Computed example of a mutant assay.
Amino acid sequence: MRIRGAIVGLVGLLTSAVVGVVGSGAAAAEPLADKSREVATDDGWQMRITKTDESIDRYPNLAATLFTREGFVSLKAVADIDGMGSAPVNSGTIGLGYQIGCQVDVTNGAAIGLAIGPSITIGVTSGVGGSATITPTVYLKPGTITDIPFGTKPLAGRHGSITSDQVHIKIDGCMGPVSLRSYAQVHISTPTADNSLAVYGDPIYL
Rank of each mutant, 00 (worst) to 15 (best):
R2M: 08
R2K: 09
G5A: 12
V8K: 10
L10K: 07
V11W: 10
V11I: 14
L13V: 15
L14Q: 11
T15R: 02
A17I: 14
V18P: 02
V19C: 02
V22R: 10
G23L: 13
S24P: 00
A28H: 02
A28C: 00
P31I: 09
S36M: 06
V39R: 11
A40C: 00
A40G: 10
T41N: 07
D43R: 13
W45A: 08
W45M: 06
K51C: 05
K51P: 00
D53L: 08
E54A: 14
S55V: 09
L62M: 03
A64R: 01
L66F: 12
L66M: 15
F67E: 07
G71K: 07
S74M: 04
S74Q: 07
S74C: 12
L75G: 11
L75A: 13
K76I: 02
A77E: 01
V78S: 06
A79M: 08
G83R: 03
M84Y: 05
A87C: 02
N90A: 11
S91T: 14
S91E: 12
G92N: 09
T93M: 08
I94R: 01
G95W: 06
G95I: 01
L96N: 12
Y98F: 05
Q99L: 05
I100K: 01
V104P: 04
I112A: 07
I112T: 12
L114P: 04
L114Q: 00
A115C: 04
I116Y: 12
P118A: 08
S119K: 09
I120V: 14
V124Y: 09
S126A: 15
G130D: 11
S131C: 03
P136K: 08
V138R: 01
V138A: 15
K141R: 13
G143C: 05
I148G: 01
F150D: 11
G151I: 03
G151L: 00
T152L: 05
L155I: 14
G157T: 10
H159V: 12
G160K: 05
S161Q: 11
I162H: 08
I162G: 00
S164E: 10
D165I: 10
I169C: 01
I169H: 04
G173C: 00
G173I: 00
M175Q: 05
M175R: 00
P177C: 02
Y183A: 01
I188H: 12
T190F: 08
A193R: 07
D194E: 13
N195R: 06
V199F: 11
Y200M: 14
Y200L: 11
Y205F: 06
L206Q: 05
